[in-house]
Amino acid sequence: MFALVGRSIESLRQVARGLGTVLKHAAREPITKEFPDTMPQLAGHFRGRLALAVNPQTGDHLCISCLQCERVCPDKCIQITSHKSPETNKPELINFKIDHGLCMFCGLCTEVCPTNCIINTNDFEMADYSRESLVYDLKKLTLTQDESAHYYSKKELPMPKPKPKPAAKPAAGAAAAKPAADKPAGKPEAKAEAKPEAKPESAEAKPAAAAPEAKAAEESAAKPAETQAKAEDSAAKAIETQAKTVETATKAEETAAKSGETQQKAEEVLKAAEASTKTEESSEKPEEKTREIDLGRVPAKSDEAAETKAAEEPKKEGEQ
């Protein structure tokens, strides 16, 4: 009997405590986010709609049509149309399509992108009335310069280097060789313009294997072609040609240092491929490779290395 009374009092006390706790919560700031009115504060690494960034400083499109993203996409929702520029002999972007209806926002494409061109924005409001309208084309995907700057700073991405060719090559071109000189001149201005005329010759000039491989960038890049051209090319290229694994590792580690460089690197891979059309073999590789791996691994040097490379390039090509 007394035990029952005791238990009753105890249970009443517990209920009262519970009521008190709940009542205290009335004084708390509501956790409700009034979404359409106040946008949620999303982290930089939030994986929202995919978009293509441009160089925040110069406004150049960063995509180099390396097809890495297309290949890595588990949903196969990325479709890149590109062709080989006749002038530069590099792949150039014609169209870039992402089917956001298929995309699962895994972010793999952004991981592999060598130029940090494809990024996940913080935009998640993509509701639309038809499936077709979920397929975004190049125009819809490309961010403005301001947006790119915003996301680059938010995601703390390294600023892509302003394209080296417009700066470096005209100077170098004046100094040195012919085929190298018209490439940089044609490239920065318009990727698509210069191509049509130039394309046929570049296509025929290249070895069958070298062209596609070069287009597909680092990993699969044609080793023979690259290796011989390595001496002239950047340190990064050396890494890639010699040991892909090493290169990807370093890339992951030193994204800061490299991202500026990678773009350049890729471009130079292309150049190397072109160069390979002229010279079939080279014997100087081994020593140079090791040297350049070191260079590539040192993040601080990458900038100057790139510049030196840019300067070297025309010379060596000229020699070859």
């Binding site: 919560h25 009335a26 509501p30 956790i31 409700t32």
Partner: peptide, 8 residues
């Protein structure tokens, strides 16, 4: 109820 459950 929203007040008590920290909502709006």
């Amino acid at each position: 109820l929203a007040l008590l459950t920290v909502r709006k």
